[in-house]
């Protein structure tokens, strides 16, 4: 059964389409990268999956049932999010934040059970945060904070994990950290969808890329089919050298931008 499906989905904002005629399907175990220029609608597509906004046209189906019919708590048992914003502000400890991942599974006055505590401990272990469990989250680096949010998503035990430009503000080491964790989740049978700007990272980690531009899907497939010279020129306005290397049954795509395919903005 298809886990997640967009059927002729459209969403407009102030009478202007942000997304139009989106048709695609997602299955468990996939790591899908959403790429596209700024304002292409990547975050909007994730918000539609989260039920934060409702489609104006068509539908988004989770296990063949429209996302809009799920209650917020029921949806949070299926879908978790690792957002870009890691600025928590208040002095929660790492463990307290990871424990919030169990909230959708607990009743109003229910205390986390031993099983919940085990899942929290496992999430901390999986993300290498055990030693930081008692630390206040606002004393951590951006990369560590992002790992805390990944740990929260792991503790949430959802079938779908969304990464909304979660690596955008991280150095290369922490980008690798977070994306490796995301890949592990996909390898464990979850559906991972990442909105991502770094095309090389997207090509390296994702099994499948969806290029969003001009309000709709322009390309959908394995990285070497999506990251092509004409598509990059048309939608990212760059001329780039693309190298594809075969590694057994998989291939690695490397993009080296050469020049802008439009007049540069000058002050």
């Amino acid at each position: 059964m298809t886990m997640l499906e967009f059927k002729d989905t459209g969403f407009w904002y102030e009478e202007e389409f942000v997304l139009q005629s989106i048709n695609t399907q997602f299955n468990s175990g996939e790591m899908v990268g959403l790429i596209g220029p700024n304002g292409a609608g990547k975050s909007t597509l994730l918000k539609l999956i989260m039920g934060a906004i409702k489609p104006n046209e068509g539908s988004v189906l989770l296990y063949n049932k429209p996302v809009s019919t799920y209650k917020t708590r029921a949806l949070a048992q299926q879908v978790s999010l690792v957002p870009q914003d890691t600025n928590i502000g208040y002095a929660f400890t790492v463990e307290e934040i990871v424990a919030m991942g169990r909230n959708p599974h607990l009743g109003r006055f229910e205390v986390p059970s031993d099983c919940d505590q085990d899942l929290i401990a496992q999430a901390l272990k999986q993300t290498g945060l055990q030693k930081l469990a008692e630390r206040h989250v606002n004393t951590l680096s951006g990369g560590e904070r992002q790992r805390v949010l990944v740990a929260r998503a792991i503790a949430q035990q959802t079938h779908i994990v969304l990464f909304d430009e979660a690596t955008a503000n991280l150095d290369i080491c922490h980008q690798l950290d977070v994306l490796t964790l995301a890949k592990t989740l996909a390898n464990n049978g979850r559906l991972v969808i990442c909105a991502i700007h770094d095309l090389n990272m997207a090509a390296r980690f994702c099994d499948r890329l969806i290029l969003l531009a001009n309000k709709t899907i322009q390309a959908d497939g394995i990285p070497s089919h999506v990251l092509t010279t004409p598509l990059l020129r048309n939608h990212f306005s760059i001329d780039a050298e693309i190298q594809t290397q075969k590694f057994g049954i998989s291939e690695r795509v490397q993009i080296t931008p050469k020049s802008l395919h439009r007049t540069p903005i000058t002050p």
């Binding site: 917020t72 949070a76 048992q77 999010l81 914003d85 502000g89 991942g101 909230n103 949430q156």
Partner: peptide, 12 residues
Amino acid sequence: LMGEIHASSVGV
């Protein structure tokens, strides 16, 4: 306290 997006992602 962590923000609306965090809250709705954990079922609020």
